[in-house]
Design a protein around this nucleic acid. Structure first.
Lengths: 151, 151
DNA sequence: TTCCGTGCAAACAATTTGCAATAGA
DNA sequence: TCTATTGCAAATTGTTTGCACGGAA
């Protein structure tokens, strides 16, 4: 990793993978363009398996290993962040998206959660225990409306 | 699994592993006693690795595989429940303990979180999206006071 | 005696790493 | 050219499964 992490969120108008890669000072390669394109096209957290599948639709030769390494690179550059979900599945998303999500334990649906409500909880936890929640970095868990109804 | 799951929480006075196993209708064996003893001695979620280590201090021959299978059995009996923590670590705890915890991403410390604050969040998420949070089944994530200070 | 439960080895899934070949600047 | 990046294979980690033996009821 040569270039300094910029931690600059991607500007709304700057949605061209190549331009983003260039502006972040890293080499423009097929796999990186493909991975970034998928992330740009997909608002909110996406799991690694889907990300890989979609990246391979754009650039069939992309190896799974490379996706992981690319995400590592992007993460150091501050381009993406990880979200821990239950089970061991892990999600990634573009930086700048600080939304909190909940994942259904049955169907794995990802639903957004009101940020202010989580903020209230975070403030409370900090006041009580000095613990600093990082709400964007983990997913809440439970049952979505459909699955709750089906059971 | 022959006996029906009873889902009966362990009575406060009934903290003898053997008695608990008998009352839940399963065979009393060394590994089960050891695992249950560790859980009874340890309030709140404990991760599988530590649980195994401590069980092996009581009963050295206990195999890791057996710990997992024992936890599966206990889970079906409603004796224990799982808590998903970040990274892929998974925690277990005795049923009846509905506390919510947060895990430090640096030192993996486990700190309790005020149940009512989580309840408020759960109510909000349910009202907003019909999503039923299962607060005891996942851990929140962030930095504990010590690690936040150290960084 | 009869199955349930266990140990062991091997299978697994998700992720990471070593290394030589390749391609971007 | 020169080094960052990739592909592939193999190692790691956490967890699960197949199978034959051994022990609880």
């Amino acid at each position: 990793m040569r270039p300094e992490p910029t931690h600059a969120p991607i500007a709304p108008l700057d949605r061209d993978p190549t331009a983003v890669l260039r502006s972040h000072g890293c080499r423009v390669t097929g796999p990186r363009i493909a991975v970034l394109q998928v992330l740009l096209d997909h608002p909110g957290p996406i799991d690694t398996a889907h990300l890989t599948t979609h990246a391979q639709e754009i650039e069939p030769s992309v190896h799974e290993t490379t996706v992981y390494r690319t995400l590592g690179t992007f993460s150091e550059l501050g381009l993406v962040s990880h979200v821990h979900a239950g089970h061991g599945r892990s999600l990634v998303r573009l930086a700048g998206d600080d939304s909190v999500v909940a994942v259904c334990r049955e169907c794995h649906a990802i639903v957004p959660v009101a940020a202010d409500a989580v903020g209230t909880l975070a403030a409370r936890v900090h006041a009580d225990a000095g613990f600093t929640l990082e709400p964007g970095h983990f997913a809440l868990e439970g049952l979505c409306a459909a699955c709750a109804g089906a059971i």
